[in-house]
């Protein structure tokens, strides 16, 4: 028996919004430690890794490890039926071929449940090696989303250059060149407004704008985003999900042809 309950459906809606542009379907691996999802996008350029810890749920029970393949479009249709403040419970029997998603209004006067067919997905699990990153940048998630949106107008690619002075995002195309520099913040009143750079070595990498923009769909989950970079390895874009876990996106770099 698997049962996981969250106090607010809005968090699940935001998580789905953060992955559904990249993935059509995905397997949710449930164990007593929580829920994990790892999947590559269709073109195998990026990888999404979601971790939701069992202790972050209002109620969590998983008697046997369970892999639930879900069509994310179907799940989105179901979540659209929830009010943001509703409680949400996911339930499945061991070896079941369906999952039940139940919404309860705060006053318990409205209860709705939706049974969704599960899918058998061919899942290719990738081992992600530990990396000592040359640069780790923490910055406001809204600022990162704004930069990705702005630079996508100028080019398909964005160059991220990180030094100890700051981080520079550049795009160059038919219109011309765009550069956005962010310096490490001195003192800030609010932690969520800070730009913090931990640099071992300067690094310059090129990435496809459309994937960065897809990652920024996770912005409503977190006030800050963390970018981890190292020469010739995938960029890691991480959004923490408060008291519940995190979503990490890995993006393969573009290299000189």
């Amino acid at each position: 028996m698997f049962e996981a309950r969250l106090g607010q459906a809005t968090i699940l809606k935001k998580i789905l919004d953060a992955i559904k542009d990249l993935l059509n379907e995905a397997t949710f691996d449930c164990s007593d430690s929580g829920i994990q999802l790892q999947a590559m996008d269709n073109s195998h350029v990026s990888l999404v890794s979601l971790t939701l810890r069992s202790d972050g749920f209002d109620k969590f029970r998983c008697d046997r490890n369970l892999s639930m393949g879900m069509n994310l479009g179907s799940m989105a249709k179901i979540l659209k039926c929830a009010n943001n403040e509703d409680n949400v419970t996911m339930k499945a029997q061991d070896n079941a071929d369906t999952v039940t998603i139940m919404f309860e209004s705060a006053n318990q006067e409205k209860v709705s449940d939706y049974e969704m067919k599960l899918m058998n997905l061919d899942q290719e699990h990738l081992g992600i090696p530990e990396t000592d990153f040359s640069c780790v940048v923490r910055m406001p998630a809204m600022e990162f989303a704004r930069i990705c949106r702005d630079l996508a107008q100028f080019s398909e690619s964005v160059v991220i250059c990180c030094t100890k002075e700051g981080v520079k995002f550049s795009a160059s195309g038919d219109v011309g060149t765009a550069n956005i520099k962010l310096a490490q913040t001195g003192s800030v009143d609010k932690e969520e407004e800070a730009v913090i750079i931990e640099m071992q070595e300067p690094v310059t990498l090129t990435f496809a704008c459309r994937y960065l923009n897809a990652f920024t769909k996770a912005t409503p989950l977190s006030t800050q985003v963390q970018l981890s970079m190292c020469a010739d390895v995938p960029l890691v874009v991480e959004y923490a999900i408060k008291d519940l876990g995190h979503i990490r996106y890995y993006l393969a770099p573009k290299i000189e042809d």
Binding site: M40, H44, V45, S46, L47, E124, H125, L126, G127, I128, P129, S157, T206, A208, V233, P234, Y250, L251, A252, P253, K254, I255, E256, D257
Partner: peptide
């Protein structure tokens, strides 16, 4: 011109 690499070339199948 830069070329897009694939994520599976960096991470090994388990």
């Amino acid at each position: 011109k830069s070329k897009q690499t694939s994520i599976s070339s960096f991470f090994k199948k388990e």
